[in-house]
């Protein structure tokens, strides 16, 4: 009995020390990681509207109830609306895909990016390299999808999110 208690105690101590070390490093790095995430998100916003890295933009993010997670309104230097970005995460058999969809004020899809995913990296890279750019400059109410690539889980998730973003835009922002 005492032996088992000793084993349990050793494991508790190892686990506790491990927890303390991880907590300390987390305290040290949490702010930097959060700032990195914000910087990365902003760089995606600029990419979505083909803006250079040194362009100043302001944005206003609101949470959305439903399939889409967030709507971000992007303003240029003079305060004019450049467009809207919709963020959503879709679950498929291989994990999750988070996509940002940029829609310009004239009702065209500016661009879409996969910001994070747990899907197979090679398939994701193929979608990023060859297929996701095809959505650029297509009208939100009549964009076409690649029927051949549409069979892959990642592409299906991307299309689902773009369709949801388009529907939301047409319903709430379209004129």
């Amino acid at each position: 009995m005492l032996d088992k208690l000793k084993i349990a105690l050793v494991l508790v101590v190892v686990g506790a020390l491990s927890g303390i070390i991880i907590y300390s490093v987390n305290e040290l790095t949490a702010d930097t990681i959060a700032q990195n995430k914000i910087d990365k998100e902003v760089s995606y916003y600029k990419d979505l509207f083909n803006l250079s890295a040194d362009t100043n933009i302001t944005y206003d993010a609101i949470e959305i109830d439903g399939y889409l997670d967030q709507e971000v309104t992007i303003y240029d230097n003079s305060g004019d609306v450049l467009g809207y970005i919709y963020k959503a995460t879709d679950k498929n058999n291989y994990g999750e895909v988070t996509v940002l969809v940029g829609i310009a004020v004239d009702g065209t899809i500016s661009n879409a990016v996969i910001s994070s995913t747990t899907n197979t990296p090679t398939f994701v890279q193929t979608i990023k390299d060859k297929y996701i750019d095809n959505f650029s400059n297509q009208a939100v109410d009549s964009f076409t999808i690649d029927s051949k690539t549409g069979a892959t889980y990642t592409y299906t998730s991307v299309v689902t999110i773009i369709e949801a973003a388009s529907d939301y835009y047409l319903e709430n922002r379209g004129e």
Binding site: V10, L11, I21
Partner: peptide, 30 residues
């Protein structure tokens, strides 16, 4: 470390260092 539980104990030790490295890399080499 008792012989019976050495493997889980070693894995916890290794996982701790990997978590530390992961956080430091995410912070300073994104």
């Amino acid at each position: 470390i008792p012989h019976d539980v050495r493997t889980p104990a070693y894995i916890v030790i290794i996982a701790t260092f990997v978590t530390v490295v992961k956080m430091l890399t995410e912070a300073y080499a994104i």
